[in-house]
Design a protein around this nucleic acid. Structure first.
Length: 465
RNA sequence: GGUCCCAUCGUCUAGCGGUCAGGACAUCGGCCUCUCACGCCGAAAACACGGGUUCGAUUCCCGUUGGGAUCACCA
């Protein structure tokens, strides 16, 4: 079988948003699954709205997601010679023509059609005028007025669109720049793209593109239109539903693999399986399992999945993503063994990296500042004696692993008659400043003998003052 | 409005003619427990409606309703 070549063609008019990321992911996964190629193409024919900053932002987001490309990025703005060549082909074969209708005339035409209850389309008035090139002329494609065009869609099945729906659409603007439909088709032909997975919102111009393929005598790619992502109110996902930008999720402390996992499950399934590593996705992703109905973006589920990925990822991987957050909080952390040990105590109780970083700070702090309420409740004179006993026991101990720590605590429990719970909370506050933290013993081990004893002594002093 | 798409628990979904309609998130109970989590056990929760086809429809067909998309010298 022929090698699968897919593509992702964002237009650089903003950041990479959730919906775009999902179609990029589907194309990327399919290419990786089939050992094919994934091409990145920047569709910047809209000069007025395209910016370099947007391009950079999109590339940055893709890199964070781990979606890499085999070819590109190509820029449509640099390919005008190719488009001209193809437009010329269409012109000389009589499948396209120049049109000099003014925008005002066109607007009036639409207005009139609308009032008459019809569809606002171009009436083809210049079609047989045999106009030649001029400054204000656009190039239109001669679309068939009758019959219908059929899309063989791998996710939706056959879609039949009456050709009457299409008018002689513009393929080259008066400034010489090709329009979207023409540029896409020429690019896909010349780049060898044979699989086009894109959003549902494109089904309506797919027949136009099919007509162009046929006029250009080029083989049709496989089309697949995936349903849109909706917001909570069932309307198409937009800014008012919250974060749209992929990198915003990075900044909120999501793991890229968790985000990918969520995105792919929104509209694709593999039996009952919910959790996927990236490699599993590559191994299991196929077009047949893409759903046909639109899905609502659910941040609760994304959060739950993120928590699961945090729990199941190797500490070294988490460390890589966590360290920037730690540094942002002003702590000098590296992706070292200490940080990884810290992560192991925190991963089961962190839903995001932001949360994890927050819970990790006390490990790195020099001096602990006590939460007021916590100190008031647990750092009281009655606990001074047990704390001193504990300090003694810990100083006497020459190993500092969990069993020996448990022994130390038992000694204190036996001599004071206190239960573990009564001792653990004050110790927790002494070590972390808070009433919530990882388990006492695992935390002590990571913190180490010196820090633990110092902090306990600080606490005793704090109470006595 | 024309055209196109879609329709299973609140949400994501499994199901591909015969199932007690399954799983996950969220919700609500309980267990575990040094805090918080994790984990475990349990509860509640769905086939939009109406016609067909069939011995039998969640499943196939048609219609209704509802939702979405799109109708530019934007992509």
């Amino acid at each position: 079988m022929e090698q699968i070549i897919t593509r992702f063609p964002p237009s650089p008019t903003g950041y990479l948003h959730v919906g775009g990321a999902r179609t990029a992911l589907f194309n990327w996964l399919y290419a990786r699954h089939t050992k094919g190629k994934f091409v990145l193409r920047i569709e910047d024919t809209d000069v007025a709205r395209s910016t370099q900053a947007s391009t950079d932002a999109i590339l940055e987001a893709l890199e964070w997601l781990g979606i890499d490309w085999d070819e590109g990025p190509y820029f449509q703005s640099q390919r005008s010679a190719i488009y001209s060549e193809y437009i010329e082909k269409l012109l000389s074969s009589g499948q396209a023509y120049y049109c000099t209708c003014s925008r005002d005339a066109l607007d009036a035409m639409r207005q009139k059609a609308l009032e008459a209850g019809g569809k606002p389309k171009y009436d083809g008035i210049c079609r047989n005028k045999g106009l030649s090139k001029s400054d204000d002329a656009v190039v239109r494609f001669k679309a068939p007025a009758a019959g219908s065009t059929i899309i063989k869609d791998v996710v939706k099945g056959n879609i039949v669109i009456p050709n009457a729906e299409m008018d002689d659409f513009i393929i080259q603007r008066s400034d010489g720049i090709p329009t979207y439909n023409l540029a896409v088709v020429v690019d896909d032909i010349t780049m060898g793209i044979n699989t086009v997975i894109r959003g549902d919102d494109h089904v309506n111009n797919t027949p136009k593109q099919i007509l162009l393929y046929q006029a250009l005598d080029a083989p049709l790619p496989t089309f697949g239109h995936v349903p849109m992502v909706l917001g909570k109110d069932r309307a198409r996902l937009s800014k008012r539903h919250g974060a749209m930008s992929v990198t915003a999720y990075r900044d909120m402390g999501y793991l890229p693999d968790a985000f990918l996992n969520y995105l792919v499950r929104l509209g694709w399934s593999y039996g009952d399986q919910e959790f996927f590593t990236k490699d599993e996705l590559i191994a299991k992703f196929t077009l047949e399992n893409i759903g046909r109905s639109p899905g609502i973006f659910d941040t609760d589920k994304l959060l739950a999945l993120n928590a699961e990925h945090i729990r199941k990822s190797p500490p070294a991987v988490i460390a890589h993503h966590l360290v920037p957050f730690l540094k942002q909080s002003g702590c000098d952390a590296g992706e070292d063994e200490f940080t990884q040990a810290v992560i192991q105590t925190l991963s089961v109780r962190s839903k995001t990296l932001v949360e994890m970083a927050d819970g990790a700070l006390f490990y790195y702090d020099g001096k602990i500042t006590y939460d007021n309420k916590a100190a008031k409740k647990f750092l009281k004179p009655v606990i001074v004696e047990p704390l001193n006993l504990l300090i003694k026991a810990l100083e006497a101990s020459d190993s500092f692993d969990e069993p020996s720590l448990e022994d130390a605590f038992k000694t204190v429990m036996n001599t004071t008659g206190m239960k573990l719970g009564k001792i653990a909370q004050p110790v927790r506050v002494a070590l972390t400043g808070k009433t919530v933290s990882p388990g006492i013993f695992e935390m002590l081990v990571v913190l180490g003998q010196a820090k633990v004893i110092a902090r306990l002594k600080d606490a005793v002093k704090f109470i006595e003052d």
